[in-house]
Amino acid sequence: MLRGDRLGTLAELRDFLAEYHERDPADWALTEFQHGEDHGLVGAVQAFWLARPGVGINVLIDPERFTTETLGAITKGIAGAE
């Protein structure tokens, strides 16, 4: 779970994570997904969404040990993160 004033929108969360993980946002292949009532973004090894303004959830897996299906299952199992 991430908290901060910089995390007011999903786009701001994406920008923060791109900077933190040193990714080029233009080359970061992400797809929108729904986590309950929250909108999120998911890639091959990472999923994240905004639980509420200022609170972001980030799930990152080791692609050598886990599949994208596992990432989806972990993401679906996270509830009530506030």
Rank of each mutant, 00 (worst) to 15 (best):
P53H: 06
E82T: 14
G72L: 02
E64V: 03
H35L: 01
D5A: 05
L60R: 13
E12V: 05
L7M: 06
D24P: 02
A44Q: 08
V59E: 10
R3T: 14
E12D: 14
L60Y: 14
Q46W: 11
Y20S: 15
T31E: 10
V59M: 08
A73R: 12
L41C: 09
L50P: 15
K76R: 04
D24F: 01
F16I: 15
D27K: 10
M1P: 14
E22R: 13
N58Q: 06
Q46Y: 10
F48G: 02
E37Y: 03
D27F: 06
G4T: 04
E82F: 03
W49I: 04
L7A: 00
L2G: 15
I78P: 00
G80F: 08
Q46I: 15
R23S: 02
A79P: 07
A47I: 07
A44D: 09
T70D: 15
G80D: 07
Q34D: 08
A11E: 05
L17E: 12
F33Y: 11
L17G: 09
G77M: 07
L2T: 11
L17C: 10
D27W: 10
R14T: 10
D27I: 03
A11M: 10
K76F: 02
A29N: 06
E19S: 14
E82W: 08
H21M: 13
E32A: 11
E82N: 09
P63F: 04
G8L: 02
T68C: 01
H21I: 09
A51D: 01
I57D: 10
G40D: 08
I57V: 15
H35C: 00
G40V: 00
A18D: 01
H35N: 01
V59A: 00
A51P: 00
I78S: 00
E37H: 04
R6Q: 11
G72V: 03
H21T: 10
A51N: 02
A29T: 06
V45W: 11
H35T: 01
M1T: 12
L13E: 08
D5T: 14
K76G: 03
H39W: 13
T67W: 01
L71V: 10
E22G: 09
D15L: 06
E82Y: 06
L17Q: 08
R52D: 15
E82K: 09
V45K: 05
I61R: 05
A73Y: 06
E64I: 05
T75S: 10
D62S: 06
L7G: 00
G80S: 04
A81V: 02
E22Q: 13
A44W: 05
E19A: 13
K76M: 03
V45P: 07
I61T: 02
Q46H: 10
V42D: 03
G56L: 08
L17T: 01
R52F: 12
A18R: 01
L50N: 09
N58A: 13
G56D: 08
F66M: 11
D62R: 07
G4A: 01
L50M: 11
L50S: 05
T70W: 14
A26R: 15
V55E: 04
A47H: 00
A44L: 03
I57H: 09
A26T: 15
A73T: 09
L30N: 03
N58M: 09
